[in-house]
Amino acid sequence: MALEAVSLDSDGLKAKAKRIRELIIKITTEAGSGHPSSSLSATEVVAALHFGGFLKLDPEAPRDADRDRFILSKGHAVPVLYAALCERGYFTEEQIMTLRKLNSPFEGHPNAAKLPGMEASTGSLGQGLSIGLGMALGMKADGKDNHVYVLMGDGEVDEGQVWEAMAAADKYNCGNLVAIIDVNGYQQTGATDAVLDMGPLAKKCEAFGWHTLEIQGNDMDEVMEALKAAKAETGRPTCIVSHTKKGAGIVPLMEKWGDTNMHGQPLPADKAKEALEYLAKA
């Protein structure tokens, strides 16, 4: 295989998103811990990046110097990345089923030193954008036309380092840097606007000099349109404020179960079965 982007049509993308959701539920239920709801909210964005013609990657040469980079700064959502890279040919389903088990490289948060495909070691929130900025600067310095995509959570942007990086990316006009904020509305102890209201996020990003887009992030067509617009903007970094639902794909079930956050809660076997049946019918 060579370094290439994979471009599926709209139906193909939606099928990938569904498959990724299935894997997220399966591997976190098998692990007995992890963050399925935080992974599910970001599924369309991660699926579009990997299968919508954006990330140039080579599963046979995962450290190829000319690849694009995707940093999952909200590292607790790593099941969505393991699932996407599984579909991309990096890993088998059997391998990612070892999530969080002793001696498995599929750790609870990305470990870049251990697992090819993980571009940064994350899990301490607020740090991925700085690392992505360093990558973007390195690409510019070497005249590479690659892009860096950094996915953050809406709780994560409480961290001050995010805004240090926003300011510096503006200074260096990093048109090759795209940040996506997965605004799923919840953080660990409750709703983001109740814990620490960081809104209005889009206005803040604009004020920091970023090309800013605001979308419904569980709508694949809107996600694709935004990522294309981000790629077309070459003079400044783009931030996509992506409004999603935590647990997207199984929200009606979560409502029935009485918890629309389910932060850090894997589904027990019976609920996982119900969720997989629900997804299959959707």
């Binding site: 700085s130 900025l133 360093g134 990558m135 600067l137 380092q161 240090e164 510096a168």
Partner: peptide
């Protein structure tokens, strides 16, 4: 000058940027 970055009074971002540059093959 093309090999030097001043990210302002922001040590957290400074170190993260250095890590990102290193992952691109730079000695940061």
């Amino acid at each position: 000058p093309d090999r030097a970055y001043n990210v302002g009074i922001a040590e957290a971002n400074m170190v993260g940027v250095a890590g990102g540059l290193a992952s691109m093959g730079k000695t940061a």
